[in-house]
Computed example of a mutant assay.
Amino acid sequence: MTVRRLILRGLGLILALLLVFVAGALVMHFGMHRGQHQQILDLQARVDTLRMTEAETNARLAGLQGQLDVELATRRTLEDTLARQQQELGRTRDQLAFYEQLIPPGPAGAVAIRAFDIRRQGDFLHYRVLLTRNAPGQEAFRGRMRFMADALKDGNPVKIELSAATAVAAPPSEIAAPGVGADPFSLVFEQFQRSTGVLRLPPGVAIRSVNLEVLEDGVIRATRDATIVDAAPEGSAPGVTP
């Protein structure tokens, strides 16, 4: 009885120890799995955060790329505009150089008639005039034109002052600034002025040539003759008498 009791008591102890061992193993196993699961959850949360950061970075990158595209387009537009303005500036400089060559040498304020032609068309004479003045830094020239015709009346040579039928005056560029007045022959310019207009042919006379006079305060400052020619046929371009 004693030996069996001891054996049973030993078996019970062994069984108890085995249960304790199994319980401990189970506790350790589930504890380890809970730790790994938490680590997996933490890693997943970190991955989600990184994905959100990547999406935000991509959005910012797309916005910056859009701004860069706009700035590049603006830059190209500005470069094109600058190129056109430089070309226009070059043309303006060429025109300025050309008209500066037309300015006659001589004392400051000297006026010259650079071109003058006159053409007959019906009962009218159409004229074109280009005037220049050597006047750097001076005030504008103020005067007027007078057209004196060499004519024949009743077989006798006479001089006749021609009157205006209509007249148009226009500056060739921004440098010239002619004034506008009641007198169609009035002149107001600094360096050069182009003028066109129409003269009335008086009846009963035969005009051979016309003398252009540029007056300042009644004093003749420049003069030039032009022979009257018939108007060019329609479609052709009349030239300017040098």
Results as ranks from 00 to 15, higher is better:
Val129Gly: 05
Val188Ser: 10
Gln87Cys: 01
Ala176Lys: 06
Leu125Tyr: 05
Ile160Tyr: 02
Ser195Cys: 08
Glu56Trp: 03
Asp80Trp: 14
Gln36Met: 03
Glu71Lys: 01
Ala97Ser: 14
Val47Gly: 03
His33Thr: 00
Phe30Gly: 00
Arg75Thr: 03
Asp217Arg: 02
Ile175Leu: 09
Arg51Lys: 03
Pro184Ile: 09
Val129Asn: 07
Asp123Phe: 02
Leu215Cys: 03
Asn156Phe: 10
Ile7Arg: 05
Gly12Ala: 09
Thr77Cys: 02
Ile118Asn: 05
Thr241Asn: 08
Arg91Val: 08
Gly66Trp: 14
Gly90Arg: 05
Leu131Met: 05
Phe189Gln: 04
Ala112Trp: 11
Phe192Pro: 02
Ala55Phe: 08
Gly179Ser: 03
Gln101Asp: 12
Glu190Ser: 05
Tyr127Glu: 01
Arg60Lys: 09
Gly109Ser: 01
Arg51Tyr: 01
Arg34Ser: 03
His126Arg: 10
Pro178Lys: 08
Pro203Gln: 12
Phe98Ile: 11
Lys153Leu: 11
Lys159Tyr: 08
Pro104Lys: 11
Thr77Asn: 06
Phe124His: 05
Glu213Val: 00
Phe192Leu: 11
Phe189Lys: 11
Leu41Gly: 01
Phe147Ser: 07
Leu61Pro: 00
Leu18Lys: 03
Arg76Val: 04
Leu64Glu: 02
Arg9Leu: 06
Ile103Trp: 15
Thr92Pro: 08
Thr92Ser: 12
Leu11Trp: 13
Arg144Glu: 15
Glu56Gly: 00
Asp117Gln: 05
Leu6Tyr: 14
Pro157Met: 13
Arg76His: 02
Arg9Ala: 07
Val27Ser: 09
Phe116Ile: 08
Glu79Gly: 06
Asp48Glu: 00
Ala231Leu: 14
Gly218Cys: 11
Leu162Pro: 01
Gly35Glu: 12
Gly197Ser: 10
Val22Phe: 06
Gly35Pro: 00
Leu6His: 13
Glu216Trp: 03
Glu161Arg: 07
Glu54Pro: 01
Met52Asn: 02
Thr77Tyr: 06
Leu15Thr: 04
